[in-house]
């Protein structure tokens, strides 16, 4: 069978079928189109300003590695004038995070970006291994997700940076829309699809430049640019129900490849229809982090962990309450740094 010519340049041999629209493309055109689409997202949403310092939340996985590579390319090609750096969170998962952090360290050299690593143990007094030891594997993703969100903001504040970009892709956003609908979570439905979050409620702006990029295309981009990324899944099992939502998204993609973007579009429209009273954002009374409740989720989870901490694990001679306040104190120190920046 004769090779198919690239849909775009009509010259080179097509080697990729784009998952988004089934166009057959050559390697160079695919890479160019992928980058151009991310650029259009950045320009269309006024994501950056010249001279802005931006921290890339880097896990060593495909999404954040592609994000770092694309941003570096676009920053040079379109002269954004961004000062980019990598920010990694060490959740403290032996056999998973320690390996992926090695990848991030190599990325820092490859992309010539400074790297800062911040650990859960440093921020919260708990590594994820310790959390799992206490709460078991069921539901541990809740702890990790809640802690990571705050950790990135606090890490950025430590570096004096006010903008963190993350590698969330279109599949992640679509999954979040479905999950929020299934959970009946109107406040999250109103903000989960925004490309930029936190700009009004917190000092740190967070954004998702890959919001419209398909996960499959991110993998293809990483493959064809031969990017160095870490592929192992987290060793702790994911939530069963979220898993069902993810499977649903994958099934939808099989039926209609545009479904992922269609869900994102629906999510954006629905977000604009959420009643204002459901969107109120407060600040945690303890750590001042944004929260829909009086006490934020991270502080609530920490309370539970600290209350049940086995006495044998307390070796520094502090009582239960002291220890609880010590982790809160640590986070208060972070807050002091936040406000100082």
């Amino acid at each position: 069978m004769a090779p198919t010519a690239c849909f775009n340049c009509k010259e080179a041999r097509a080697v990729i079928i784009r998952p988004k629209n089934r166009h057959k493309l050559c390697r160079a055109c695919f890479i160019k189109i992928f980058e151009t689409e991310v650029h259009e997202t950045i320009i269309g949403t006024n994501l950056f300003f010249p001279g802005e310092r931006v921290a890339i939340g880097a896990s060593g996985g495909k999404d954040s590695t592609v994000l770092a590579a694309v941003l570096k390319t676009l920053n040079e090609r379109y002269d954004y004038g961004l000062d980019l750096c990598l920010l990694s969170i060490d959740e403290g998962i032996r056999g998973y995070r320690d390996d992926s952090l090695e990848t991030v360290k190599r990325n820092a050299v490859q992309y010539d970006m400074p790297l800062d690593i911040l650990g859960y143990s440093e921020l919260y007094g708990w590594t994820m291994d310790q959390v799992v030891e206490q709460v078991g594997k069921k539901g541990n993703c809740t702890y990790c997700g809640v802690f990571r969100r705050q950790a990135l903001d606090r890490g950025a504040a430590r570096l004096g940076i006010r903008h963190v970009v993350t590698g969330h892709n279109a599949d992640d956003v679509a999954e979040t829309v479905m999950m929020n609908l299934l959970r009946g979570d109107l406040p999250r439905l109103s903000r989960g699809t925004s490309i930029v979050t936190g700009s009004d409620a917190s000092d740190i702006k967070r954004s998702k430049p890959l919001k419209y990029a398909y996960e499959k295309e991110i993998v293809l981009y990483a493959h064809h640019r031969q990017l160095d990324y870490f592929t192992t899944e987290c060793i702790y099992s994911p939530e069963a129900f979220r898993g069902s939502a993810r499977t649903l998204i994958k099934d939808l993609e099989k039926i209609r490849p545009s479904s992922i973007l269609d869900i994102v579009k629906s999510g954006e429209d629905m977000a604009a229809l959420v009643p204002v009273e459901a969107q109120t954002i407060k600040h945690c009374e303890r750590c001042n982090y944004i929260s829909s409740q009086r006490i934020c989720k991270a502080c609530t989870l920490l309370d539970g962990l600290n209350r049940n901490r086995p006495k044998t694990a307390i070796e520094v001679g502090v009582g239960m309450e002291d220890e609880e306040s010590s982790s809160t104190l640590m986070r208060q120190m972070e807050r002091a740094q936040l406000s100082a920046t």
Binding site: V177, L252, S259, D262, K265, S266, L273
Partner: peptide, 11 residues
């Protein structure tokens, strides 16, 4: 509702 969302008809 889920099908509407998946077909871009969220609004």
């Amino acid at each position: 509702a889920l099908a509407g969302v998946a077909k871009g008809r969220g609004s």
